[in-house]
Design a protein around this nucleic acid. Structure first.
Lengths: 194, 194
DNA sequence: TATTTTAGACGACATCTGTTGTTTAGAATA
DNA sequence: TATTCTAAACAACAGATGTCGTCTAAAATA
């Protein structure tokens, strides 16, 4: 299994093969639930030999991890390009981004399944935690960040997960307005002075 | 696959077979990581025909779900036998229970792996959420419980997970004292008047 | 341009999963 | 106690996974 190399030095065959696999995987996810998709399904659609798959991904779960990570990173980079510290507004936008991403996943992927959701959760929480930790460490106050970042990360993901699962989905901005104070309450100590 | 029947009416062969499987699974978990354990390993150790396994459990993941659920339910029942509403002290004991349970799982089970942890998480969070919701609904005030219970559930699990993974594990009571205010802050509205 | 390196195709294999129908044995009922 | 019902054993099967060594083709280097 190949390491995630920087794109500048990547053999074009590797790039091509990875992209074919990721794209085929995404297309299949839109039609069928994750559990029912086999490695043979993905490689067949990508017109790649099945054994080649294992040069790029450890297994189907690793494939999902890498796909989700790529998708979410792109989404966050798009919305939070120049954000480097905690504000109430940045937190709102982060919660909004996660809610929309998860809701989109629910719409775009047929019948999410427990293992699919668990893997998605792990990837996204890792990124939220890193982002929040980075924001909170930008404060001048040198406060410990680990426990507040942990609590906030899990709270954000929990709320977004609840939102994306809701049978009757609430109006997003109202939901975020209701949820935001419960996340923000532990983070205000990190807000930059005006 | 058999439904979870009440124990009074259960054919003794069913009880015996289930217990043999669960016990063998637990013994194997103490020696090897979850991913490396096959259904054949479990049924071989239990001296049960492999096909019989599938009359009781959907797959190995269902086995883990049921084992964890049973273990955690017993632990909570032991510690919170007569607790029916939210207090600061009950919340502290809940966080303590979850931290100890997860830390114990880390000690008793060889090399936890991502899917193992995800499944554990799902089971335990469900139980925390149900318990918290029950507590919060006991309040006289008729406040909406879903979002606070969600945030608290995820925060509790997140903190316990962090504690159980810590390389240098902090003193538990100190950790809980530090973490408790961040969880409690959103729940004090539900405390019973003295 | 020739050579070397690297990625992918290929066929084969062992192992495991989940399922099926039949037979045997244990438990419940008459 | 005999009969009926239910659970488990059993063998076999199809399908999927992950791996391996060899060959072919594309990319990089000299």
């Amino acid at each position: 299994m190949l390491p995630n190399l920087k794109e500048e030095k990547l053999d074009p065959r590797v790039k091509r093969t990875r992209n074919l696999i990721l794209k085929s995987f995404e297309d299949l996810l839109a039609e069928r639930n994750f559990e029912s998709i086999s490695v043979q399904d993905v490689t067949g659609k990508a017109q790649i030999n099945r054994a080649t798959f294992y040069s790029h991904f450890e297994d189907k779960y690793d494939l999902l991890n890498q796909w989700i990570s790529q998708m979410f990173t792109q989404e966050i980079d798009k919305r939070m390009r120049d954000v480097c510290h905690y504000t109430h507004e940045n937190l709102r936008n982060l919660i909004l981004a996660v809610c929309e991403f998860l809701a989109g996943l629910h719409s775009d992927c047929a019948q999410p399944h427990q293992q699919f959701e668990s893997l998605v959760e792990t990837q996204i929480k890792n990124q939220i935690f890193d982002l929040l930790t980075h924001w909170l460490e930008e404060t001048k106050a040198s406060l410990p960040t680990e426990i507040p970042a942990t609590v906030a990360t899990w709270a954000i993901y929990g709320l977004a997960s609840q939102y994306s699962h809701a049978k009757k989905r609430p109006v997003l901005h109202e939901f975020v307005n209701e949820a935001l104070p419960l996340v923000a309450v532990n983070l205000e100590q990190f807000a930059q002075p005006a």
